[in-house]
Design a protein around this nucleic acid. Structure first.
Length: 630
DNA sequence: TGAGGTGTGTTGGGCGTCGA
DNA sequence: TCGACGCCCAACACACCTCA
């Protein structure tokens, strides 16, 4: 998060003109996918090139519509073809062909057309609404093939408030239900449709200004598919772009793992790849992880380009009966290896098939979209907003921490009676592999795929999980928190810091001073002025004083420097100190003291047991004991 | 990797007070 | 009497540690 006046990090996709958009000239930023290098640099075409790149690019855009492409790509192909539009178009289509439909499937009528021209009969996103319900070319084929996260559509799973029911994954009526969109698989049409709705919302709210499909999708990912929030939280279009710039622009840069990289660098790069694959899954909702990984790999892990390609053309599922060629180490020989299918699993741990033969294709985009650009960075004159208040609002929803290789990470609270079955599952990408975790606990799960095996527990799984049971919800919540933290290596809030004696004494003295002041002012005794009624102002003053004294220090030899404590935290601590309770009649925190007593008891019991074991060991093997003591 | 223990911090419902 | 406001505090969420 960088505030106003803070030095902004330059993205790897920045270039000399400060990333302004649209980008004139033909320079290809470092963000251009490495695969572009494969395109021939010379064209045999002899037609006279137009005078300047901008004119040529306009001509190319007109010729290519509706295959809209970002400026930087067009510039690249034009430069390669020495500004010969015809040749550039041919190269561009050839390149698109390799990226979008690798490798060509042997079966059926889905073979990619030679010129790469999309001739999908799919309806436009708006029209697809009708088609999806009436059995149109694309819409008729249910593109999820049972791919809702919930494999169980029984009435029992219908949520009264509709927030947790997971049936038809592409239902138009679900377009305003972020969770429904977010946690379903292969609901690609719905996602594109919601992006189009977002574009229309933006146009209405910002006097006809538009965003690009890629921006819309990434904004929806950022705001967890809540398109209302995108418009509500951002006052200006360039505010959205600043967010995208900071969060996603770096994900255009190629990731190449070199043999000379150190292990740490390699790990870092693999993690970056994991992050991008997880985000591509979040953006597209696709279940066929192997296809998405292949797409990213072929485009040097340019996430932004992959999303753009997905939106405009669709990403064809990999035919896993085929093989792909890979360079073998050292010998320089290409080796054919089979493509292993990797499919995401639903809440019952059943694999969700890839989209069907036609369902993956994107419909023709609606008119009115903005044009893809080389960077999300707005004109620097459009000053960066101060995210302060925004981000405070965002702490709970959506989370402000950086993206991690957890798919659809959802750290929102579980609530008793709120059935959110997607929270039984945790998915992620770790070291390039798809990771699936399913909560089991000590419960019975009828219908759950037998392949899911939990830890051998001594407890019997003879009870079904109850969404209305506070204890059950608590267990699931704890499991999720632990599993997400272990996978993401990131926590939602900072760890709490123990109170040192010095801090406790400081808090005591603050109250002492206030009591003394009141006694002097009113002539009353201490017993008469306590317990104190502490106003919000005074609480804040106390917290400020405490932080002024201790923040950044390590009182009592603490491990980490103290961070600011809040006023409520300070007030809580007053009720957990015996001295405060006795002297100033602070209300005793009964739960805290009960837990503390129990902990002390446990410690004493453990010490006693250890001592007893020591005695027994003494008797059994005195020599061994002596060695340990030494 | 699941789960329990522990200490810290936050939340939201309940309650008292005050002014119209 | 009623609504608005501020304060209190029980409940619980959270991170971290540890063990099996």
């Amino acid at each position: 998060m960088s505030g106003r006046g803070t030095k902004r990090h330059r993205s790897s996709s920045d270039d000399e003109d400060n990333g302004r958009r649209p980008r004139p000239g033909g320079n290809i930023g470092p963000s251009a996918p490495a695969t572009l290098a494969a395109v021939p640099t010379n064209s045999a075409a002899a037609s006279a090139p137009p005078a300047d790149l901008a004119t040529a690019r306009t001509a190319m855009v007109q010729a290519l519509l509706p295959e809209a492409a970002p400026d930087h790509m067009l510039s690249h192909f034009l430069n390669c073809a020495t500004l010969d539009v015809t040749a550039a178009i041919a190269s561009f289509r050839a390149h698109r062909q390799t990226i979008f439909a690798p490798p060509p499937a042997t079966s059926g009528g889905d073979k990619a057309k030679g010129n790469g021209q999309r001739k999908s009969k799919s309806p436009s996103p708006t029209n697809s609404k009708k088609a999806s319900s009436s059995g149109g070319v694309d819409g008729g084929a249910k593109d999820n093939d049972g791919g809702a996260i919930d494999g169980n559509n029984s009435d029992e799973d219908k949520d009264p408030d509709g927030s947790g029911s997971e049936d038809d994954s592409d239902s138009e009526s679900d377009d305003d239900k972020p969770d429904h969109i977010r946690h379903r698989y292969n609901n690609e049409k719905q996602r594109r449709r919601v992006a189009t709705q977002l574009m229309n919302d933006v146009r209405k709210s910002f006097d006809g200004e538009t965003i690009t499909p890629t921006e819309a999708i990434l904004l929806l990912v950022y705001y967890q598919w809540d398109r209302k929030m995108v418009v509500d939280v951002n006052d200006k279009i360039y505010h959205m772009q600043w967010r995208l710039f900071h969060r996603y622009d770096r994900m255009r840069a190629p990731i190449v793992i070199n043999s000379t990289d150190t292990e740490d660098v390699k790990k870092l790069k693999v993690r970056e790849q994991d992050e991008r694959l997880a985000l591509l899954i979040e953006a597209t909702g696709r279940s066929d992880v192997h296809s998405l990984r292949h797409i990213l790999k072929t485009s040097a892990w340019d996430l932004v380009d992959a999303i753009s390609a997905w939106f405009h053309a669709g990403l064809k599922p990999l035919d896993t009966t085929q093989t792909t060629t890979t360079q073998t180490k050292g010998k320089g020989k290409a080796k054919a290896i089979a493509i292993a299918p990797v499919l995401r699993r639903n809440v019952n741990a059943d694999e969700v098939p890839a989209p069907s033969q036609t369902a993956w294709k994107a419909p023709k985009p609606e008119r009115g979209w903005g044009k893809d650009s080389q960077t999300f960075e707005p004109d620097p004159n459009d000053s960066e907003p101060d995210y302060g208040s925004d981000d405070e609002h965002l702490i709970s929803n959506p989370p402000v921490h950086a993206p991690v290789p957890v798919i659809n990470e959802d750290r929102s609270r579980l609530r008793v009676g709120q059935k959110e079955r997607h929270k039984l599952v945790l998915q992620g990408i770790s070291n390039g592999r798809y990771l699936y975790r399913r909560y089991l606990g000590p419960f019975k799960w009828p219908g759950l795929n037998k392949s899911v095996k939990g830890r051998k527990s001594t407890k019997k799984r003879n009870e079904e999980f109850d969404w209305f049971n506070k204890k059950h919800i608590g267990m699931l919540s704890r499991w999720r928190r632990q599993a997400i933290n272990r996978l993401s290596k990131q926590t939602k809030v900072a760890a709490s810091q123990p109170w040192s004696d010095e801090e406790n004494k400081f808090v005591y003295d603050l109250t002492r001073k206030e009591v003394d002041r009141l006694m002097k002012e009113t002539g009353k005794t201490q017993k008469e002025v306590v317990p104190l009624v502490v106003s919000d102002d005074l609480k804040k003053k106390w917290a400020d004083a405490l932080n002024k004294k201790f923040t950044g220090t390590k009182p009592g030899g603490a491990k980490d420097p103290r961070t600011d404590r809040t006023a409520p935290a300070l007030m809580t601590q007053r009720c957990r100190l015996e001295s405060m309770i006795q002297d100033f009649a602070c209300k005793r925190d009964k739960t805290f003291f009960a837990k503390k007593a129990k902990a002390d008891q446990n410690r004493r019991a453990a010490a006693k047991a250890a001592a007893a074991a020591g005695v027994a060991a003494d008797g059994d093997d005195e020599e061994e004991e002596e060695e340990e003591e030494e």
